[in-house]
């Protein structure tokens, strides 16, 4: 290795120093494209094409009489003025606005506890916390459905013990908080692990320097470590927001335990699903999906910009 490596760097350095891409380098770069190609093909076929198709479909309307007709943006105007659609959007926004910060605070709390080594058996706890990630959302909704079940479920019994009689966790007033609890159950472990890893990558010396500077613990956590893991937090807010706005499975399954509480338009994705599949109004559904997509983009991007402007949490 040492023999050839002595001459190799010189030639490579020469190649790199050449002003524009030589034929050799260009040929090599094209091979890079070859590596990416299989993924790109699948990506185009199964993401771009359906997306384009959806956008096309949204501009049409198929009627029983008259077949498929180009209707332009009429689907969109219908949606934008539809109270049903927007009430679902508002609901998921409220859902996200409560669930995400609560979950992140809990996740950060535990991530910090593990990072500082103040909780014994950190590894064991972290593994336990991560188990919900291995549980399919359907199964988790099923399990929690049983637990929350108004008549026979254990939580109702417990509530009775504490004096809260006849609490129906799946009633229309309590079902959203219940789903928030489920979501926190599902995602805290994952978020906590990512934050923990980010905290671990803070150089030890910086914390030691802070200790020598006699910095109180709360200041170390909030003023030194927290700002340094901001990229991870931003990414988590981003991912969590996208997930929260697409809430679908939990309400769908919970409806089986408590009929009627979850309306057709309870969340945007539910509404899209019901419109497209159950009512077979594909065009309208497609338009809704596009509107939802743009809404998600808008909210995600603004939350990112917001973070960057503030220059840090708190």
């Amino acid at each position: 290795m040492s023999g050839t490596a002595v001459t190799a760097p010189a030639r490579v350095a020469q190649a790199r120093a050449r002003p524009r891409h030589s034929a050799w380098v260009r040929r090599r770069d094209r091979r890079g494209l070859a590596f990416v190609m299989p993924f790109l093909v699948a990506f185009t076929l199964f993401m771009i094409v359906p997306l384009a198709y959806a956008i096309c479909e949204s501009l049409f309307n198929s009627r029983i009489i008259g077949g498929t007709v180009f209707t332009g943006l009429s689907n969109y105007t219908q949606i934008l003025s539809s109270g049903m659609f927007w009430s679902g959007v508002v609901r998921v926004i409220i859902f996200g606005a409560i669930q995400i910060p609560v979950m992140l605070i809990i996740a950060f709390f535990f991530a910090t506890a593990f990072d500082l080594g103040v909780a014994k058996y950190g590894r064991t706890f972290r593994t336990i916390f991560f188990i919900p990630f291995a549980v399919p959302v359907v199964v988790s909704a099923l399990m929690w459905g049983f637990l929350f079940e108004p008549v026979y479920g254990p939580f109702s019994h417990l509530a009775n013990l504490f004096g809260f009689h006849n609490t129906d966790f799946l009633s229309s007033s309590l079902v959203l908080p219940s789903i928030i609890v489920i979501a926190i159950w599902e995602w805290t472990g994952y978020n906590s692990l990512i934050l923990y890893t980010a905290l671990r990558s803070v150089p030890r010396e910086i914390v030691e320097a802070a200790i020598l500077d006699d910095t109180p613990l709360w200041k170390i956590i909030l003023k030194i470590k927290l700002p340094m893991v901001r990229p991870a937090i931003v990414m988590l807010i981003f991912l969590n927001t996208i997930g929260a706005l697409q809430l679908f499975v939990e309400p769908l399954i919970l409806n089986n335990y408590s009929a009627g509480v979850i309306t057709l338009n309870w969340t945007p994705v539910l509404y899209i699903f019901n419109t497209s599949i159950n009512s077979a109004q594909y065009n309208l559904g497609a338009a809704m999906a596009v509107v939802l997509g743009l809404t998600i983009v808008a909210i995600s991007v603004t939350s990112l910009l917001f973070r960057r402007d503030r220059g840090g949490m708190a």
């Binding site: 010396e205 802070a210 500077d213 109180p216 340094m228």
Partner: peptide
């Protein structure tokens, strides 16, 4: 202590870095 990798607080200015201990 002066650390090998300097251990400066990356999100604070030089002024704030210098003054951190004094604030505490």
């Amino acid at each position: 202590m002066v650390f090998q990798n300097y251990a400066l607080y990356p999100h604070l200015s030089v002024y704030q870095n210098l003054g951190f201990a004094l604030e505490n």
